[in-house]
Design a protein around this nucleic acid. Structure first.
Lengths: 132, 132
DNA sequence: AATCGTTGCGGGCATATACCCTTTTTTATG
DNA sequence: CATAAAAAAGGGTATATGCCCGCAACGATT
């Protein structure tokens, strides 16, 4: 028999948990990636795409596209920074409102997942990001 | 302060580890998703798209598209099954050859990851799939 | 044999993600 | 100050992934 691929296992777990968070957030019209993006923007706004990418550990071009999606939803604003090269992102009022509604939904899901995994595995989960 | 989102953590870890396996497999011209697909095909061939999807825990339409990619690479064959609705997949000779070359590369990466994470965290990976 | 519910695909649509290349703007250097 | 190097976006291309819808084939029931 062959060992299961650690990467495949991890991806599978990520898909599953993602679907869960997505379902919880669906009533608000956003998914977990967008929720995470909005939170990151709120904490650092106004913030450039590059900095956002560094923060979320995503490719800059990925950031640009993901931001465009939430921009179309009217959740964030995109402006030019002082540095004319930068595109700086900030939450719109609508974005703030959506975030406020989404937060308790997310928290409930987060808690359920935490209970289901237990503190030990949660701890390990956090360590994965550091180690890889 | 806000708790980090378990889902986001997991996705991030999955992206990172995925990039690693992808890099290792790049010389063979496939990525980890395709490697995993080829292995699944080899073990069950000839296998229908639906069954493959169930096996890999992927949406059937996703399976269809992913299979088409490796088909274009000449790694698998797609035929009609006895049941005329089914599209059955099997490895081509080239697919087998690529798999044989890819396996040792994958194994080395797999071992490195295992060493880096240690047994406890490795075990977590397996458990996540079950629990989520 | 005609019909109807089920199953299996394929296509359309959308998001997430990454890599590469080009253009624009800034900055550092001679 | 002029110019070259560096930084920031943006667009192109490609894969992975999921949902929904429609079509075709299969099987059971009448």
């Amino acid at each position: 028999m062959s060992t299961p691929c650690h990467c495949v296992q991890l991806r599978k777990a990520a898909r599953k948990i993602g679907a869960r968070y997505d379902a919880v957030l669906a009533p608000v019209g956003i998914n977990i990636a967008q929720f995470s993006l909005l939170r990151a923007v709120e904490r650092r706004q106004p913030v450039s795409l590059t900095e956002l990418g560094r923060t979320l550990d995503l490719d800059r071009s990925t950031m640009g596209r993901n931001v465009r999606v939430v921009e179309k939803l009217g959740l964030v604003r995109l402006d030019r920074g002082e540095d004319q090269r930068e595109a700086v992102v900030s939450l719109s009022e609508h974005g703030v409102a959506v975030l406020r509604v989404a937060e308790p939904l997310w928290e409930r899901c987060q808690r359920q997942v935490a209970d289901q995994l237990g503190p030990t595995r949660l701890q390990l989960l956090g360590e994965l990001g550091q180690l890889l």
